[in-house]
Design a binder for these strands. Structure first.
Length: 225
DNA sequence: CCATTAAACACCC
DNA sequence: GGGTGTTTAATGG
């Protein structure tokens, strides 16, 4: 018994206020997609047809420079939604998304998303909050990138996965390998390892086998190396 | 020089 | 087999 894309969407806190008519239209139009590890889920320059939610798995969003080097924007795990930016702006995708693991996605057609934004005040609030949070996130990422300090980069990419606004109800423990953290933070695995050990000594998080547990989120966000 | 990284390694779940 | 922790030699500022 697996969760369907519709169940996943309707299980979101912001979906509780949807009307019967809204639920009915979503039931007709929401799609589900499975993507193997290593596959693209969205590509720079392509038309945006769906607003997308991660049901399970892990997605990395990144941008690629002309020389082929990439800069990671953020990671998305279960409960994340993305694409509202390009959908609202009626623009192509402005970044690339790759599944780091086998991943299941919920797809909401562009027109349906825009309709919900107009029709549902609760959904509108959620989208505004999500946009504001991502703005803050990217400001912090730019800052971290300029600081160019590996432990800080690891901390930032980790801390955002536990952001309570983007991921309401997220448990403090997350199943993430150090290799995946390396991909997400743009830092090599050795440095991820060193950084995690340093942070563990500082009492900010605990590491487990293929998992990390955040003990002090404000402390992590304040971490300056 | 020093720091960082890729590659290879041996352990452990 | 994959995740983890360490060592090594190569690389680049």
């Amino acid at each position: 018994m697996t969760t369907t894309a519709l169940d996943h969407l309707l299980g979101m806190p912001w979906a509780s206020a949807f009307t019967a008519a809204q639920r009915e239209r979503l039931a007709r139009e929401v799609l589900e997609r499975e993507v193997p590890a290593g596959t693209a889920v969205c590509r720079h320059g392509l038309t945006v047809n769906y607003w997308k939610g991660v049901i399970g798995g892990l997605v990395k969003l990144s941008v690629e420079g002309s020389d082929g080097r990439t800069s990671t924007l953020t990671g998305l795990h279960a409960g994340a939604w993305f694409g509202e930016g390009p959908v609202l702006r009626a623009q192509p995708w402005e970044y690339d998304g790759v599944a780091l693991r086998p991943t299941r996605l919920a797809l909401v057609p562009r027109a349906t998303f825009l309709w919900l934004v107009r029709e549902s005040p609760g959904f509108n609030d959620f989208v505004l909050g999500q946009l504001a949070e991502r703005l803050a996130q990217f400001v912090a990422i730019i800052e971290a990138e300029r600081l160019a300090n590996a432990p800080v980069r690891v901390v930032r990419s980790l801390a955002w996965l536990f952001n309570p606004v983007l991921y309401p109800g997220q448990s403090p423990r997350l199943d993430l390998t150090q290799q995946e953290i390396a991909y997400l933070s743009g830092v090599t695995r050795q440095r991820v390892n060193q950084s995690l050990r340093m942070l563990e000594r500082a009492g900010l998080l605990a590491t487990g086998y293929g998992s990390v547990e955040v003990l002090d989120l404000p402390g992590l966000l304040a971490f300056k190396g």
